[in-house]
Every structure is written in structure tokens, then in C-alpha cells.
Design a protein around this nucleic acid. Structure first.
Lengths: 215, 215
DNA sequence: GTTCAATATTTTGTATTCAGAATCCAAGCG
DNA sequence: CGCTTGGATTCTGAATACAAAATATTGAAC
């Protein structure tokens, strides 16, 4: 058995990320270090280390003297993040192993089609979409790029609840996924990259509209 | 007088970054927390916080039980970082305020020309190149994107000493800068973006050759 | 002189402590 | 009734303490 030893700060970071994804921490809420540390069963030291890591990744903010808080969401941030993710995913797709893409494209098409018909819970939809993109970019060997993508997408994820449960958005997204897969199957990498960019761009404005309407 | 209060961890981070840029810490070297903390006149706690921030940014690594070390350089990392910076700078340029670009392009051209003729020290060349790119992208209002660029470029900076003091590399770079500026002056944004990407791509392989030859 | 084991020293990872800043609360005053 | 002010309380930011792991050192056996 391979015994793994991970620093507490890393485990705490993962746990906070998981809770964040579950929506346990409302955006903008203050972090009470003592309480959260007690809740996690650790001392404040490794918790603060984890929070600092998350701050660099953009999920948490800190103001001098006032401690940490979960980063508030804003239309501005959403508008900034989308093109970044689009550019990074486009680059990842461009630099993917062609052989991997050829092998994987049919699967991607199948998933996109299934995605279209299945009506699922919010969490499930979110997970499906993530899986699809992960599979799409699984052939990219640029580790730094993939790490960057992971962290930037973590920031974006806080906005997806707005998109989801909108019937038309979902089927639009599924259609775009199909288009990407089809172009990959036909060997049109440049076209697939364009479609992927469009996938990230197309929803942006409509989501932004919703975001501002809600607040 | 506006009194500013910054957490120690931020000040420490800046200081370590500055020393890193000065080449005080050889790549791959272990960090002795106690010694460095004493050297900086702080305790280990905020130093570790700064190191963790730098770890997330990719400049420092940590292995469980063995502490931190300054990230080693590798051809692999360089090959990974270049296209990322290229894509991000391209996006930043694309999404810049057009009016800013029109206003700034002549200055960019002047700087590129001066850059060509002036023979300067390594530090000076490095600074000039940074200033040029900063000015080029000064019209981008996407804060998240610019922050990302700053951190990714910090990782890349550890490789520039390889490029520099090569006469032909410098004049090639200056020529590319001129091309970008000229296209901006003529209003050809798409062309400028292409040239900017090329600027990041063109040197990559030659630098990599040097990198591997050196080691 | 090498190799190995036993022990001493250093260093890390985490917990605890502490000073000072921020927040809260209630009494006093307009 | 609202506004201010003084003090109690909570919380953050940083220093210190401590246990366990890693590393260095010694010394004995071959």
C-alpha cells in the first residue's frame, strides 16, 4: 500500500474547494478562521495557508485587518474570466495530441448527444459539462496550461448556477459541443478551435444579463 | 498622508520576487526558512505564507517533509510557458481599448527603434523589453487577465538570461516589435496580434536549443 | 578505509500564544 | 431619539513553542 502524506494545507484547500462547489459558502461572506478551523479539526495555521493559496487563485480575498472573505461574484469578473478560459481552452485544444483527438472525437459526439436529451439535476449537468471538457482537453500535455485552466475554471464555476436550469441554454450548449465533435471527426482542428471559442463566448452576454437582473 | 498597511506576507513576497529577479536564489536551491526569515527580520509564519503564495504562482515548489525550494528550470517548462504567454498577451491586445492603441502605437515604434540601436546591460535590456510589453498592453482593462499575465511572465523571466546577450536575438526581437507597432499604426489589429504571437513563438526553439546545450 | 547503525542536530509542519486592531455595545449627551 | 464615546469582546496578524521527520555525525565492525 502506498502511504500518502499530504500537508494539511493541501487537504484543507481541497475540502474548502469542495464546500465552495457545493455552495456551502455564499459569495462575499467573511471567513471566521477560528470557527472554520475548529469545524475542520485543525489549527488556524494550516487553514490560513490554504486560504492564502485560494486567495492567489482568486477564490478568496483578504483585506488588511479584516481577514479573509469568499470572493464576491460580479458581472465584471464574469466578463473578464470568460475570454480567458476561451483562449486557454483554445490553446489547449490546438496543442493537443492529434491522435488522441481522432480517437476521442466519436465519444465526445456521443456524450454531447446524450447530454442533449437527458434532463438532469443542476449538479449533474454541471458535472457532465466538466467531464465533456475534460475529455476534450485530455490530450493536451502542457501541464502548466492545464493547471492554469483548472484554477481559472474554478473561479468561473461560481457563476454556473446562473446558466443552469435554463432549458434553451443547455440545448444550445449541447449543440455547440456536437459541432466541435463533428469538426474534430472530420479532421478540422482549426474549425473545432473556433467552435470552442464560440462556445465560451456565445453564452456570456445572456448570462450577464441574468446576473445583473438577479442582483 | 495616506498611511498604507500591507500584510507582512505581501511585503515578503515582493522582496523574495525582487531577489529572485536579481538572481540571488539559484533555481533548484532549497529554502532554509529559519535563515531566510532571520535574514528578512520576520518570523517563519509570514515567510511561509509568502512562500505558499509563490508556490501557487509556480516559482517555488514544496515536497512534503522537505520544505520549499526555488523551482528548478527545465526546457519542458519553458516550452509550456511560451505559448501560454503568447495566447494571453494576444488576448490582452485584442481586447485593448482601440483608442489607447492608436494613441500609443507611435511611442511603441519609437521605443522599438531605440531598442535596436542601444547596446545595454542585460538588466537594462530585460527592463526595456518589459516596459515595451507593458506599454503595449496598457490599454487592456481585463484585470484578471493582466494579473494572470503578470504571474505567468514571472515564471518565464527566469529563462531570459539565456536569450539575452545574444546580439542576433535582440535585433530580431526589436524588428518584431517594430512590425507590431507598424501594424497598430496602420490600424491592423488582427495583424498586430499575429505578429505578437510570432514574437513569442519565434525565439522559443532557439532558446530551447541553448538551454539544453548549457545543461 | 567503508559501511552500517545509533545518536545528535537541524528543519519542517502544526499548534499555541500574544499584541494590537476592529467590532460591538451600552451609557452619556445633545 | 440619534449621535458620540469609552470600554469590553472578538478577531486578525505575527511570533513563539513543540512534536515528528529528515539529515548529519559519530563510532564501531569488518
Amino acid at each position: 500500500m502506498a502511504i500518502e502524506r499530504r500537508p494539511l494545507r493541501d487537504q484543507i484547500r481541497d475540502e474548502v474547494l469542495a464546500r465552495l462547489r457545493r455552495g456551502d459558502f455564499p459569495a462575499g461572506q467573511d471567513v471566521n478562521e477560528a470557527r472554520l478551523a475548529a469545524d475542520l479539526g485543525v489549527s488556524r495555521t494550516p487553514l490560513r495557508e490554504a486560504l492564502i493559496a485560494l486567495e492567489i487563485e482568486g477564490l478568496i480575498q483578504s483585506r488588511p485587518g479584516k481577514g479573509f472573505r469568499f470572493a464576491p461574484v460580479s458581472p465584471k469578473e464574469y466578463r473578464e474570466l470568460c475570454p480567458v478560459v476561451a483562449a486557454l481552452e483554445a490553446l489547449a485544444l490546438e496543442s493537443s495530441d492529434p491522435e488522441y483527438l481522432a480517437r476521442t472525437a466519436p465519444k465526445l459526439l456521443t456524450m454531447a448527444t446524450e447530454f442533449d436529451v437527458s434532463v438532469a439535476s443542476q449538479a449533474e449537468i454541471e458535472q457532465r459539462d466538466d467531464e465533456w471538457h475534460d475529455l476534450l482537453l485530455g490530450g493536451c500535455r502542457n501541464e502548466r496550461l492545464m493547471d492554469l485552466l483548472t484554477t481559472v475554471k474554478a473561479s468561473l464555476r461560481r457563476y454556473v448556477h446562473v446558466v443552469i436550469d435554463d432549458e434553451t441554454e443547455i440545448s444550445r450548449s449541447a449543440g455547440e459541443h456536437k459541432l466541435i465533435a463533428e469538426r474534430l471527426i472530420s479532421g478540422d482542428l482549426a474549425g473545432a478551435v473556433e467552435a470552442l471559442k464560440a462556445n465560451w463566448t456565445s453564452g456570456t452576454e445572456r448570462v450577464l444579463e441574468k446576473l445583473t437582473r438577479e442582483s
